[in-house]
Write a protein that binds this DNA or RNA. Structure first.
Lengths: 226, 226
DNA sequence: CTATTAATATGATATATGTCATATTAATGC
DNA sequence: GCATTAATATGACATATATCATATTAATAG
C-alpha cells in the first residue's frame, strides 16, 4: 500500500492540511483503483460515500439535461479531489464522472474524511475554499453560456484546454477530446463545433491533424473569446 | 439595537448553529441598514469584508459579462446570508447585489464571523452545506443555459418565481421583475422575453396586466419547461 | 486484411433568437 | 397636469445555430 505522505494529491489538494498521523491513518483506509479510459467512476444520482483522490489522469464531470444530452460541467485532473460536495451535502452526486484517460485514483470512505472536519480546521477551510472556487467558476460558466456565442465559447475553451493541460512535443493539445465532447463542453451541436473548428483552421488560428488540435494564434483566439 | 436571537435570519440560515453567547456577541458588532429598491449593496470586485444578513426584502445577484450585459445569477431573500463565498475565499465579491425591493439588512464584520468557524463546527458545516447547495444549483443553471431553449427557460423561471416568492391576493407573482430583469435571468434579449411572455399570454398560460404576471396553467408551463 | 462501425466533415435547410425600428403605454419630474 | 423619459410591445429583418442528409475518414472487431 502506497504512502499518502508522498502522494501528489496530498501536495495540491485540501489534504495538504493533514499532519503525519492523519496521513498514516488515511493510508490505512484508502483503496486504490486503476480506471480505464471511458470507464465510469460514478454516475449522477449514485451514493458515493467518500471522496476520490486523483493520482493520475483526467476525467470529465457531466450532467444529463432533460433533453437527454450530456453536458460536460468540468474537467478534473491529477492532484484534485472528487465527490466533496456530495459528501458534505450528504446527498447523491449530482454529476457523473467518466475517465478521459487511464486513471489512477484512491477512494477514501466518508467516515474517515468527516473526522478531519471536526479535528482539523485548516482542512475544513481548504475544502471550503475549493468549493467556493468551484462556485465562482460555475457562476462564470453560467454567464458565459447565457451571453457568449458558440464561437466565443469555443475559442475560450480551446485556450482553457491549452493553459490547463498543456501541449505535446508536437505542440498539439495534450488532452484528447472528441468533437462530441468538445461540443458538450461549450454547449452546442457536434456539427456546429466541427464547423467552427474548421473555420478556425482556415483562419490559421488552429491546426487540425486527425484528432489533434494545435493552437496557432493565442492572441487572436483570446480576442475572439472576448 | 435589536437582538439577533429573535431574528428571522438566525432561524433559517447557517447562524442557527450559534448559541446564546455567540448571538449576544453578534448583536454587539452588527450594524443595521435600510436599503431602498434599486440601491446597490455591493458591486462586483469590491472588498466587502463581512456578510450581510437579509432581515427583509429581496435582491438580485448579477454578473457583468464581457459584452457589457448584466446577467442575474441568483435572487436572495429574507432569512438568507450574502457574501459568504467572498469571505471564505478571501477575495473580492464576484457578483453585484442590488435590491429589488426595500430591504432591511445587517452587516457582520468578517473578523467576527471567522471566529465562529474555529469554535463552532456546526456553523462551519452549515455554511459549507449552503455553499454546496449553491454549487449544485449553479451547475444545473449552466446546463440549462447550454441545453434549453429560451422558451423552456422562461417557463421554468416563471414557475421558480411562483414557487419561491408566492403570489399576491390577486394571484399575480409577488416578486416584481421588469421585463429587462426577467430577460437577464433567463439569458435572452429583452424583446425576445417580451415576445414569449406575449405568446404565453395568448396561449392562456399566464395573464399580463401592466407589469403584473399571473400564472394561469402551472402544469402546461411545467411541460414546456421540460 | 477486410468488414463494420464510429468519428469527422460538409452541404442544404429550417428555425430560434438577436437586432433595429417604431409604436404605445406607464412612470416621473417639474 | 403636462412634458419628458423609461418601460413595454410589436413588426421586419438578419443571423447564428440546430437539424437532417450524406460523404469521407479513422478505428475496431473478427
Amino acid at each position: 500500500m502506497s504512502k499518502c505522505e508522498e502522494c501528489i494529491v496530498r501536495e495540491f489538494s485540501s489534504l495538504k492540511a493533514l499532519n503525519k498521523d492523519e496521513l498514516v491513518k488515511l493510508a490505512g483506509c484508502k483503496t486504490s483503483r486503476i480506471i480505464r479510459k471511458g470507464d465510469v467512476i460514478f454516475e449522477e444520482g449514485e451514493n458515493v460515500n467518500g471522496i476520490f483522490c486523483i493520482k493520475d489522469g483526467v476525467c470529465k464531470l457531466t450532467k444529463l439535461s432533460p433533453n437527454g444530452k450530456d453536458h460536460i460541467v468540468k474537467l478534473v485532473t491529477k492532484g484534485e479531489l472528487l465527490g466533496q460536495r456530495s459528501m458534505i451535502s450528504d446527498e447523491p452526486v449530482h454529476l457523473s464522472a467518466v475517465a478521459l484517460e487511464d486513471m489512477e485514483v484512491c477512494f477514501i470512505p466518508k467516515t474517515e474524511v468527516m473526522g478531519f472536519f471536526d479535528k482539523n480546521n485548516q482542512f475544513s477551510m481548504n475544502v471550503m475554499k475549493t468549493i467556493c472556487g468551484d462556485l465562482k467558476e460555475a457562476d462564470s460558466h453560467t454567464v458565459n453560456m447565457a451571453q457568449k456565442t458558440v464561437k466565443e465559447r469555443l475559442a475560450e475553451t480551446l485556450l482553457y484546454l491549452y493553459n490547463t493541460f498543456g501541449k505535446n512535443e508536437d505542440d498539439s493539445l495534450k488532452i484528447q477530446l472528441s468533437r462530441d465532447e468538445l461540443a458538450s463542453m461549450i454547449g452546442t451541436a457536434t456539427e456546429s463545433c466541427i464547423r467552427l473548428l474548421s473555420d478556425f483552421n482556415k483562419l490559421g488560428l488552429i491546426e487540425l491533424v486527425g484528432k489533434k488540435i494545435t493552437i496557432k494564434d493565442i492572441s487572436k483566439l483570446k480576442k475572439i473569446s472576448e
